[in-house]
Design a protein around this nucleic acid. Structure first.
Lengths: 357, 357
DNA sequence: CTGAAAGCGCTAACAA
DNA sequence: TTGTTAGCGCTTTCAG
């Protein structure tokens, strides 16, 4: 490993000159610059990251802090990670993945004071999240994916759940649906103050109220089995429901499976909308799911870019941004079945509706 | 940020003593040790990661190098990442996620010579992968997830594709199936020497030969649409097929969808086995998929542990390990339909099968 | 068992 | 436009 001294000697300049052509923090004559550059190339020189970090107090490492439970990451969270990683990499930063549960702010505090991170992106933020305070106390530049309850003085990027729910409900109501059930995340997630679960719940109530409809919400475990149970509960509570709204990539398949088992055709008898879903997942089933596609990788990228801007430029403004999910109509939604009618549309030419386009 | 000097002063010892209680590289009397520890606690001291790295030439950072194309990661790859991250974190190492295409060994070389990584895990290894050579030249401890063609002198952890395919084929043959079609990854992946695709292809040919059956393989794009096309191609080539073997988490849903559209019941008419699949995915559909469950997170964890052992202990042995996928029989496989029989099982109790449409 | 001091490879004053 | 040099905070000889 060639060092800066080697380069300096070979280019017949001082180390500081070499350093300055590297950092560009002071003017260098074209002649010496090229001499230095040549020397570097000839020696295959690469600046030592640790030495740089120590001397400059900037590691060029950013952290991505995320809880990683046994279940692993869903498609949406994975997209955040890859988006953030790509953005960091593109800007010449390294991205450290740190598994840190929302429950242990102490681990976060330790990480923050080690001087390894120039800044961090915090994922899966809870409405009341101790990690945020720990990070702020450490004075570490910070961007959230998700939001705490009080966001004053914080930078965040999040999905616009309110708008997403409203759009979903409007779509269904526009098709004539009135008995719509919302399948949310688990009761424990809601109780824990998991933002997406809490915000969609509230938005659903509001959206239904706007249409003077009664909001029925069912909590569901994040699994196919949970989805089946949820659908059963939904039908028990609203036997003549015509539409299911869900925000649970894992449960959605159980919901569809249970509908099939019960002989309720999609979308003939029941329309299904999946919120915060990736197109890949939506296309997995037949008919493909009408969905509100999550911004996915874009969210991770935007969060990372906001953080890097904060690191490069002088701190300054907070970046607060909500990204909408975009409605993509596929085959799983259709006009509501006529209010009375026999149970099930068995007589309809089932093959007739040409779902996906 | 308190430094070591502060701690030393407060504990009335020299900096070196503080350092030694931290690293444990030389005996310290119990008395001074506790004095130092107290001083640290009182000051909330955390050793500076960069300074440590510079002085010790060990960053305690390991890299996870992976290609990250637009599509993002599948469930299996995500599991590798989380497994590796957890293992690194548990051992007190930081894990840097670096997106590095198989196509740019130069980027790898640059990363390797920056002195940021104590070692790296390389994912999605191609049979002929320039990154491996780049890493070896840089003298960086290295563990692969996947394998190159020639593995002498290399450490790797990989799925035992040969065994996996044999087990899958044996399962189907044991159920009486003889016309089995294998749906592999895309033709371009196979051509590029993507290990899983190449190895399963060869293993499938061998497994079928062992049973004196003709191996028919169809290449499929990694998408639901690709799966539909693949199933169509399969039926075109083997109209009376009774079983489909697939190793393509994305295509499998298209395959199932197309089977449903063609009125072929699963498993009544056609049995389906999905290889290298996570249980979550297998449970997504109805009937749930008989699958060879991939070791997932375990693979990432084992690879990382092998790397860390290499870093801690004196280099030494290569770790070469193949992990089996375990056969989990669910609802998508059953006895082969009788060799002649009418087209389709129209007379069967239709309620039994899942027609999700 | 403990201290003093020489770096690790770089950045950034300070000085020319 | 360039050189000299004092650190950055720690590890690790070398001495006691």
């Amino acid at each position: 490993m060639a060092t800066m001294h080697d380069v300096a000697r070979r280019a017949r300049v001082s180390v500081s000159t070499v350093s300055y052509v590297l950092t560009g923090t002071r003017p260098i004559s074209e002649a010496t610059r090229t001499r230095v550059l040549e020397a570097m190339a000839e020696l295959g020189y690469q600046p030592n990251a640790m030495a740089r970090g120590l001397a400059s107090r900037r590691s060029r490492i950013v952290g991505l802090l995320m809880p990683m439970d046994e279940r692993g990451l869903g498609a949406t969270e994975t997209a955040f990670v890859t988006g953030a990683a790509a953005a960091a990499s593109a800007a010449g930063y390294h991205l450290v993945l740190s598994p840190v549960g929302a429950a242990d702010p102490d681990v976060v505090r330790r990480l923050a004071t080690q001087g390894m991170f120039d800044g961090v992106v915090l994922m899966e933020v809870q409405v009341d999240d101790g990690r945020v305070a720990a990070l702020q106390e450490a004075g570490l530049p910070l961007v959230l994916i998700g939001r705490t309850g009080d966001t004053t003085g914080l930078s965040y990027v999040d999905i616009d759940f309110e708008q997403t729910v409203h759009e979903a409900v409007d779509h269904l109501v526009g098709l004539g649906h009135r008995r719509i059930v919302y399948v949310n995340h688990s009761a424990s997630a809601i109780a824990a103050g998991y933002g997406p679960a809490v915000r969609t719940r509230d938005a659903f109530v509001a959206a239904m109220a706007r249409h003077r409809l009664e909001p029925v919400m069912i909590a569901s475990e994040d699994s196919a089995a949970g989805g089946r149970a949820a659908l059963s509960a939904a039908v028990a509570q609203v036997p003549d429901l015509t539409a299911v709204l869900a925000m649970n990539e894992s449960a959605i398949f159980g919901i569809l499976g249970e509908l099939a088992v019960r002989g309720r055709a999609v979308p003939g008898d029941v329309s299904v909308v999946s919120m915060v879903t990736s197109p890949q997942v939506a296309e997995l089933v037949h008919p493909a799911l009408t969905a509100l596609t999550s911004p996915g990788a874009a969210l991770g990228r935007i969060a990372m870019e906001a953080l890097l801007r904060q690191l490069e430029g002088a701190a300054g403004q907070n970046h607060q941004q909500l990204l909408p999910c975009v409605l993509e109509i596929r085959g799983s939604t259709g006009p509501a079945a006529p209010p009375v009618g026999g149970a099930g549309g068995g007589a309809e030419p089932a093959g007739a509706d040409p779902p996906d386009r």
